[in-house]
């Protein structure tokens, strides 16, 4: 277990270095930081002085090393627009995105397992056909279209639910959440459903096909030959084997979900990281863009490691000793 974690940690460091290098190198491409900071009115000489002072004339590698040293202390630069440390800005926006991802994950878990399992066990049932048809449609509708459609129906036409913002939030343990108030939940409903709408159909299909394959397996037939109750045959023998591929793919999907928050948050003007990122791009707020990429990269690395650990715990054939058996 320890060796496994160590190996993962090594990989994570390499991946983070690559991300930070790539992110940092785009900094030069996105406009002149000096102009962003002091405006156009300063004379060319003062500019040159300032450049020298800020180390902008240093070689790339030296600048990168300075950036890395700062990053390790949690200093990812200062946002041009907010005039505050970029990391602070992101940490302010993080809870909104976490609310959104949690709520979407809740929908996905709530529906994908029962629907997928039901469709696998009763492939000819009308409900299975309906679910499979809907999931084909769900996969084919881009997430921003789902969002627009929901807004049009529930906000513009029916006027039942708000179309933008987080509504009322409360703070617990320094985490500002909308999950605990009625108003916050009302605001969360449409964004979370549209975010879930991309991933949910994928999960339903995957669980169904993996479960169908498991139900055909010889060990399931043997479980029946042992006289086990059908419920146990399905939920313990077939479903537990279904979980393995679902966990692996599910981990990747969480990464995809973070990317899709950019779209969802933009449509709903949800004050999270994704919306902030798009605004930062439009404002050429380079430090904020770089900081966002690094934070998201870190989230990916952490999620992937957790997924691998969970996979190892569920799959007896993988010993957490560093190498998959």
């Amino acid at each position: 277990m320890f060796a496994f974690l160590l190996r993962r940690l090594g990989q994570a460091v390499v991946v983070m270095l690559v991300i930070s290098l790539l992110s940092f190198s785009i900094q030069d491409e996105l406009g002149d930081p000096l102009r962003e900071l002091v405006g156009q009115s300063v004379s060319e000489e003062t500019r040159e002085e300032l450049r020298e002072e800020m180390g902008l004339n240093d070689p790339f590698l030296a600048q990168y090393m300075r950036f890395l040293r700062g990053a390790l202390r949690g200093d990812l630069g200062v946002s041009y627009f907010f005039k505050r440390p970029a990391l602070d800005v992101i940490l302010d926006k993080l809870p909104a995105t976490i609310d959104l991802v949690l709520a979407a994950t809740f929908w996905i878990l709530l529906f994908s397992v029962p629907v997928g399992v039901f469709a696998a066990v009763n492939p000819r049932h009308w409900f299975s056909n309906l679910a499979m048809g809907l999931s084909a449609v769900g996969i084919s509708v881009p997430v921003f279209l789902t969002a627009i459609f929901l807004i049009y129906l529930f906000s513009v036409e029916l006027g039942w639910l708000p179309s933008y913002g987080r509504g009322e939030t409360t703070e617990i343990f320094g985490w500002e959440t909308g999950l605990l108030t009625r108003d916050g939940l009302r605001h969360l409903l449409l964004p979370s459903i549209s975010l879930a709408s991309v991933i949910l159909p994928l999960f339903v299909r995957m669980i169904r096909s993996e479960m169908m394959e498991a139900l055909e397996a010889e060990y399931v037939r043997f479980a029946r030959a042992k006289g086990l109750r059908e419920g146990r045959v399905r939920m313990v023998h077939a479903f537990k084997n279904t979980l393995l591929p679902v966990i692996t793919v599910g981990g990747v999907q969480i990464g995809i979900m973070v990317a899709y928050t950019i779209l969802t948050e933009t449509v709903f003007q949800w004050p999270g990281m994704g919306f902030m990122f798009l605004e930062a791009i439009n404002r050429a707020d380079t430090p904020l863009i770089v900081a966002y990429l690094i934070v998201v990269g870190l989230i990916f690395v952490i999620v992937n490691t957790v997924v691998d650990i969970v996979y190892g715990l569920v799959n007896p054939a993988v010993k957490l000793t560093g190498k998959p058996a």
Binding site: V252, G255, A259, I262, G297, N304
Partner: peptide, 16 residues
Amino acid sequence: QLSFTTLMVAIVILAV
């Protein structure tokens, strides 16, 4: 490459 989702990569590259 896959762990950075296509959408994210595309947004960054096209924005730059």
